[in-house]
Design a protein around this nucleic acid. Sequence first.
DNA 1: ATAGTTAGCGTATTTTTTACGTTAACTTTG
DNA 2: CAAAGTTAACGTAAAAAATACGCTAACTAT
Lengths: 247, 247
Amino acid sequence: MNVPGREINPHISVDCVIFGFSTNQLKVLLIKRAHTGPSGKRIKDHKLPGDFITINEDLDLAASRTLEELTGLKDIYLQQFAFFGRPGRISNRVDIDWLNATTGHEIQRVVTAAYYSLINITETNSDFAIKNNAAWIDIQQVPDLAFDHDTIIANGLKHLQKTLRNEPIGFELLPEKFIIRELQSLYEVILGCALDNRNFRKKILKSKYMVQLEEKQSGVAHKPAYYYRFDRNIYEKHKKESLGFNF
Amino acid sequence: MNVPGREINPHISVDCVIFGFSTNQLKVLLIKRAHTGPSGKRIKDHKLPGDFITINEDLDLAASRTLEELTGLKDIYLQQFAFFGRPGRISNRVDIDWLNATTGHEIQRVVTAAYYSLINITETNSDFAIKNNAAWIDIQQVPDLAFDHDTIIANGLKHLQKTLRNEPIGFELLPEKFIIRELQSLYEVILGCALDNRNFRKKILKSKYMVQLEEKQSGVAHKPAYYYRFDRNIYEKHKKESLGFNF
DNA sequence: ATAGTTAGCGTATTTTTTACGTTAACTTTG
DNA sequence: CAAAGTTAACGTAAAAAATACGCTAACTAT
């Protein structure tokens, strides 16, 4: 094992792809960046929420800290899915200048651990995020991003899609109680395909972890749907039996 | 974004869980470490192959470099699967001393990017590895390892199992030509369960990517089996159609 | 020649997936 | 206040996939 005899090691950061679901759209929470570019003119663009880790900080904790600082939320679904460490990944002049300006250091190289997170957007946490200069942006309309954050989001989405097919994580994006149609729309939007509502219902209800509540929708101009909730305990118990969807 | 105003960033390393398959066993390639412990007595133990990355080195390239240095092999199946960055992960006195001794630096914290690799063990690359102080060890009989390498291996195995169920990667562990029985044994050993040979054959042959060769086994005391090879081009072409096994 | 062994094909049954029809329960509209 | 519009919720038939086995073929060792 040989060690580079250099003074400088790469900095390590975490970046979070924070997914939310609202108005039938899959969204990501992005930080709005406004700064002065090298040519002197003001630049407005977006980046993923993220931060450098502190010297004694666990990566997972750094990620949940970032998430909490931005949304005020704790105990949220958060998963590492890849790391990005290409030496050239921070090559854009704008990005380099911005990094040096905001950190006050000469940042030479950053290796980032990428996480994705699923949160249920509420007024409370949404306001919180907006105050922190963040914005929910439809995954279909993500603009060009700083660094290699486009790649990171694309990668995170792939992981989300794969996981959604194999584990019950859709609930993380919904409120405590929800109707089946909402869950189906969520699957359709994330997987990018239409699903048959009758078959979807059968499949999802076959899994025991869907608990029907007594409450129905009210004020809707059609037959009201029952609310359901996800029961994690039941899921854990029947885990072996219910492995994966094959939509 | 705030940056720690510290001089020292964590070191970054790559660790490789290198899987091989021989004599019907799943094996991992481990480095034999012999060194002097804090009490002055000689210690013999094992660790995963790995290395610190150099300042301008891509993580993926650092991993393939490590692999090539150890086995002489290029263009090998290699996948990042997790990173390990707990501040306390290097807590053992023996490990700390060893790190400082071998590197000549005060190593305070190491974040490691974990890769798993699948290789076809041959006499050539096996001799190569042995000369580099490595040993193939049955996954069932891995001794206590340095650092948190036990965790990394356990994690890597899980990823291997999951991927084996969804993608045709078993071939990476076998020679160019192989018989179906060998492939089945490989699945059985990795997944840890018995499979019905008739159903396995049906399922695997339904995937178009299994190409039967004209050559049969010879010198065996039973009906000789045909050799097959894996055709990656055919696989790529039919990818959508053949998604996943459900053993 | 016979016994022992694995290869390789096949069939019947069960389970899962897919495709699609129909009634129920609510609000809105004319 | 009846009719129209809309989504909920249940069901059935057909196709596909997974599972559980039985049997013959082709080789070597004795």
